[in-house]
Amino acid sequence: MPATEAVAAPRRLEWLTATVTDVIVETPRVKSLVQDVPRWPGHRPGQHVDVRLTGEDGYQAQRSYSIASAPEAAHLTLTVERIEEGEVSPYLAGEVRPGDQFELRGPIGGYFVWTVAAQGPLFLIAGGSGIVPLMAMLRHRAAASVAVPARLIYSSRTFGDIIYRDELDRLMARRDGLEIVHTLTRSQPAGWSGGMRRIDREMVASAGFPSSQRPRTFICGPTQLVEYAASTLQELGHEASLIKTERFGPTGGVG
C-alpha cells in the first residue's frame, strides 16, 4: 500500500458562517468585529482565520485575519485596520454592522502561538495592527490568571492610533507581572511619558528581558519593524529559535 494511503486523510477546514454581533471602534482606522460562529472549533492565541466575502453578484474575496479574542472568550473577535486602497479591509472596517454575515475558516497556523503551557517570560513586540495576535496572547494570559512575566513594546503612529489602549491600561493595572511600553513615532500628546521614536536597540534592550531568561518572543507588524526587531534581538544574544515572527503588510518595495 502506498505510504500516503496509510495515513488517515486530514479533516478539511470547513467554511463557517460568522454573524457579527458587535462592532467596536478601536481607532479612527480600526474596528473590532465581535462574531457568533456556530461550530467554531476553538483556537490557540496567535492563530488566524481566512475570511471570505461574497458579493451579491457572487464575486468572492479572501484575506487572512488574526484572532484577537482569547480562547476563553464566548465570541470570536477580529480586529481590522482599514487600508485605503484595499478591497476587503475598507469593507470590514467600514461597512460592516451587527447582523451582517460572512464566511471564515480556521484556526490556521500552529507556529506563531503561545499558551500559558509554554510558560515564559513572554516578550511581545508589535507595530500598528500587529498587536492583534499578541492581544489574544495577553487576553489568554489574563483569563488564565497566571503571573507569567510578560512585556509588550508597542509602536503606534499617534496616541489616537493605539489599538486596545484602555484595555491594555487595565491589563497593566492588574499588576500581575505585565509591563507595557508604548512608543509613538509620528506625534505625541503633551506630557507623553512613553517612547517618541521607532523601536530601536536601546528600547528593546531596556524594555525587554535579558537573553539569559530565554523569553518566548513574538514580533508582529510591518516587515521593516519585524526584520529590525528580530535581528536586534539576535545581536543581543537571543536565540533565533525562540523568536517567532508574523508580518501583515506590504514591503513597500520589491526584492
Binding site: 467554511w15 458562517t17 466575502l53 461574497t54 458579493g55 464575486y59 460592516v96 454575515q101 460572512f102
Partner: peptide, 8 residues
C-alpha cells in the same frame, strides 16, 4: 455562502 451585504 451568505451574501456579505454591500460588498462588491
Amino acid at each position: 455562502p451568505p451574501i456579505s451585504r454591500g460588498f462588491r
